[in-house]
């Protein structure tokens, strides 16, 4: 009897394992192909077979042969991403803490903030572009595009903070006050240290959402493109494996920032583990 149950279980395990393998292949297969082809030799084309492995198309990317501002747009995207990240963290953390008070109209305000998540991004950009034109405001990547991206990242940040705070035991705040901490001290020494891993998560989301944002940015980015916008433009004109090289490069940046953030979260949890007072002593 026991043996039969066991064999039945392993059959299910194989079936589910096979299904999962297919899923992973479907998820990462396309990316892996792009990754491989980006190392195509100088004589190779945009499809298989690979003639020889080289970094030719990466070099090509930064040469004058390409009529696109790859390094400039890359820089702009990084700076914009950091700006979006900072604002998203600041605003969503403060807002989520405020929402805990259940003030009058908080429900309406919450839905008002969340609703921009389900609005088609392109329409937001379109509407924003029209308003800017009416008001005669010039679009640039660091002002109007920044605003457009925040309509996307802020609700995300807010939702993450809600989830983080839902697991937060408020009695530690009461304990801090009971032990003589002012509101500011409670925030500084208890709430923020305990929320820091969650806050880092919000920062990661803020940055990565901005880094590959297109629909909302499209019509309000101004004269200088962000990286995704530049790539989008290039796909129409570029017909060499340099296109794949861009894909590989941008993926590396994304993976690096995610890895960095996860590492930071892990380290923070470890540091929270050890004495925090010792390290923050003046």
């Amino acid at each position: 009897m026991a043996k039969r149950i066991h064999s039945k279980n392993s059959l299910v395990t194989y079936l589910l394992g096979g299904f999962f393998s297919l899923y992973v292949l479907f998820l990462y297969g396309p990316m892996f192909i792009i990754f491989l082809l980006s190392f195509q030799g100088p004589t190779g084309g945009m499809t298989f077979p690979i003639q020889e492995y080289s970094l030719h198309w990466f070099k090509e990317l930064f040469s004058d042969n390409i009529a696109a501002d790859v390094s400039g747009s890359f820089q702009r995207s990084i700076i914009l991403g950091l700006m979006v990240m900072t604002l998203t963290v600041t605003i969503s953390v403060i807002a989520a803490l405020g929402f805990r008070r259940n003030f009058k109209g908080s429900g309406i305000m919450f839905y008002g903030a969340i609703i921009s998540l389900i609005m088609p991004g392109f329409l937001i950009s379109f509407g924003m572009g029209l308003i800017l034109q009416l008001l005669d405001i010039e679009s640039t990547w660091y002002t109007t595009a920044l605003g457009a991206q925040l309509t996307w990242t802020l609700p995300f940040g807010l939702l993450i903070m809600f989830a983080v705070l839902a697991r937060f035991d408020r009695s530690v705040e009461e304990a801090a006050r009971d032990l003589g901490a002012t509101s500011w001290q409670t925030m500084r020494y208890v709430v923020v240290p305990l929320l820091l891993p969650g806050i880092t998560g919000v920062a990661l989301f803020g940055f990565t959402l901005s880094y590959d944002e297109i629909p909302r940015t499209t019509l309000v980015v101004g004269d200088s493109n962000t990286l995704p916008m530049e790539i989008l433009a290039m796909t129409n004109t570029l017909t060499t494996p340099s296109l794949y090289a861009i894909g590989t490069l941008t993926t590396v940046v994304s993976v690096a920032s995610i890895t960095f953030a996860l590492f930071a979260i892990k380290r923070m949890q470890d540091r929270l583990g050890s004495s925090q007072i010792a390290s923050s002593e003046s």
């Binding site: 035991d169 530690v172 009461e174 304990a175 801090a176 009971d178 929270l272 925090q276 007072i277």
Partner: peptide, 14 residues
Amino acid sequence: AMMFQSYALFPHLT
């Protein structure tokens, strides 16, 4: 001074 039901110790402090 209050001793809380769940003790409410600060988990990040020794």
